[in-house]
Amino acid sequence: MRARKLIKTAVAELKASEAIDHWQKGRERIEAEDLLAFVMGGDEPDPDDRIGNAERDAFEGLIARRATGEPLPYIKGYTEFRGLELISEPGVFVPRDSSEYLAEQAVKRLRGRRSPVHVDLATGAGTIALSVANDVPKATVYGTDLSEDAVKLARRNARRLGLKVRFATGDVFGGLPKTIAGTVDVITAHPPYVAMHEVDDLPDEIKDWEPVHTLTDRSSDGLGFVRQTVAEAPAWLRPKGWLLMETDPDRARDVKNVMADGGFRDVRSTKGGDLKITRVIVGRPPA
């Protein structure tokens, strides 16, 4: 069978899936082409190329898995983020392309500092922390996560990439050495911000596959983690440091208000990157 026909059939199957969130135009074709290239060893075939029976069967199996809502990184076993190939496994938060803007904002604020220190909260597979360590080699980088599985995977990714990041298990700032209190230049977080009663409303590909603790902090408004971070961050930040939190556009105003009410200065909502579907709320600690 030719690649063109395979892709066309796969796109139709993905479009018909009720488990997938069809938020992006052309997403189904992008994913089908990605999976076919994966099956073919990394090279996307030309539309008129003939695909062997073994490769066709493997591809159709992967498409069937994706149609159930299984995230692409879980299917492939890895994901790419700002030029880094990160191992991805079930049980650990799936890195989002939209988070690249959060990493970019952190890198921009760290590069000009003499001996920068960065802390990434709810680090998951280490996505943001490793991206910062890669782009700012002189930085001392820490990552924390409540999940031991996430921290183990983050450490595996660090070893595989040859990047030095200190990962620790702990809730919010738990696990960080107290010696760095007051020395951190940038704190980043992609917090769980879905209210507990809203989890069931999420797309199947999220609620059925990703760990619940990465989606909600189980608070009534989804802002429990945000409030704790805002309350504790000033003790860790330098006076001229920054707190950067990624959130959904619908939550941006709420997160911004929590930071402002917590005494943070120069608080504003920013957006950027290729996929402008999330917001990064930035602010300086109280004077």
Rank of each mutant, 00 (worst) to 15 (best):
I281K: 05
D135K: 07
P116S: 00
L84I: 06
D120E: 03
K76V: 11
L176M: 03
F173N: 05
W236S: 12
V119Q: 00
D145S: 05
R160K: 14
Q105I: 06
E28G: 06
G83I: 04
P95M: 08
Q24W: 10
I63V: 08
R50E: 15
L86N: 11
K8S: 14
V141F: 00
K138I: 00
Q228G: 12
K207I: 07
D248F: 08
R155I: 06
G77H: 10
F59R: 08
P203F: 04
T214V: 14
L86V: 09
I87T: 11
D221W: 01
D34H: 14
D34Y: 12
T140P: 00
K108D: 14
V165Q: 04
L86P: 09
A10M: 04
P285E: 06
K5E: 15
T68N: 09
V172T: 06
L163H: 06
G263T: 11
R218I: 04
R113L: 00
G224T: 10
E28R: 05
S98P: 11
R265M: 12
G26S: 07
L244M: 09
V258I: 13
F225W: 09
V184C: 01
G126A: 10
D200F: 06
A67C: 07
F225L: 15
I20T: 04
V280D: 08
S99I: 01
V255A: 14
M245S: 12
Y74K: 13
A3P: 06
R268G: 15
M40H: 07
D149R: 07
L161D: 05
V151Q: 03
L223C: 11
D46F: 08
D34Q: 15
R109P: 02
P239M: 02
H213C: 15
G170D: 02
G182K: 02
A37R: 03
H118V: 00
E70V: 09
V267K: 05
K276I: 13
V172E: 04
T247K: 07
K25A: 15
V94P: 11
L130A: 11
P137E: 06
M196G: 10
W242Y: 09
G91L: 04
F38G: 14
K25Y: 05
G61T: 06
A154L: 01
K152A: 13
K76D: 15
E85L: 12
P249T: 11
D135M: 08
H22P: 10
G41K: 05
D254I: 10
V194L: 07
A231Y: 02
L36I: 03
P47D: 10
I180D: 05
W242S: 14
R82P: 07
I7M: 08
V165L: 02
L121Q: 03
V230F: 04
V107N: 02
E89A: 15
E148W: 01
T79C: 15
D204I: 09
V132K: 00
V165S: 04
G69R: 02
V184Y: 00
E18Q: 11
K164T: 10
I30P: 03
A189V: 09
R56S: 12
